[in-house]
């Protein structure tokens, strides 16, 4: 084993990967939510569709998107490693456990939250991302140039109440996941200082409410404006 694999296989190394991929995904979410705000523009989806094209063709964005895929997969794979390891560290569990007295619910259930988010992700990717990349998407022309009309797909999709509900509920789970994950990533990286940690906690709290709320507002907005 070289020192690299040894480090990455240590509990701390695995945590490091979780933290780094997690933080990258937080960055991704930030970008994702900012771009998607174009849905609220009320221009029939023109800005949004142009943005979608940019995101799927620009080489720099491509590179970022590969990083995102790696982060998602790394985050999932290492969480499985860690969860298995952590489960094996306590082969006999307690009959009575009073976890709520010493820790937050979300911090104890990151695996469950993550799994729910993963299920959502599959639905989400299949509905939009896969269609955008490989599916049949009607075209639309702005200023002489052809664009895939992703906006149409989105607004069609969110006419279904169940899908809107799924998105909104999933964002609640995402919020809880982030409520622990945000500050936790900094702690894992060793960034805990009495001067800065309170600020990290506050930003984390704002982030975990604001970003999922914005995401959730999109299907709601489309659902209620499309009639």
């Amino acid at each position: 084993m070289t020192w690299v694999t040894k480090t990455l296989n240590s509990t701390l190394g695995r945590k490091l990967i979780m933290a780094l991929t997690g933080l990258f995904l937080i960055l991704f979410l930030t970008g994702h939510v900012s771009g998607n705000l174009l849905l609220f523009k009320g221009d029939g989806g023109q800005a949004f569709n142009m943005y979608a094209k940019f995101m799927t063709t620009n080489p720099a964005v491509k590179l970022l998107s590969y990083l995102t895929y790696i982060s998602v997969i790394g985050h999932i794979v290492y969480s499985i490693f860690l969860t298995q390891h952590n489960k094996s560290a306590r082969p006999v569990s307690y009959s009575t456990s009073n976890g709520s007295s010493n820790s937050a619910w979300s911090s104890r259930n990151m695996g469950v939250l993550g799994t729910i988010i993963l299920i959502f992700l599959v639905v989400h990717l299949q509905g939009f991302w896969a269609k955008m990349h490989w599916g049949e998407v009607p075209m639309v022309t702005y200023e002489g140039e052809e664009y895939k009309n992703l906006y149409l797909i989105v607004s069609e999709a969110f006419k279904q109440v169940w899908l809107v509900a799924l998105y909104v509920v999933s964002m609640v789970f995402l919020g809880f996941h982030l409520s622990h994950g945000f500050a936790s990533a900094f702690q894992t990286l060793g960034l805990n200082h009495k001067k800065y940690s309170p600020a990290i906690k506050v930003v984390g709290m704002i982030y975990c409410i604001l970003v999922p709320a914005l995401f959730a507002s999109m299907p709601l907005y489309i659902h209620f404006t499309s009639y």
Binding site: T11, K15, A104, S107, R108, S184, T188
Partner: peptide, 11 residues
């Protein structure tokens, strides 16, 4: 020793 990894619950 087989201890688990930290998930920063603070317990």
């Amino acid at each position: 020793e087989g201890f688990g990894a930290c998930t920063n619950t603070g317990a």
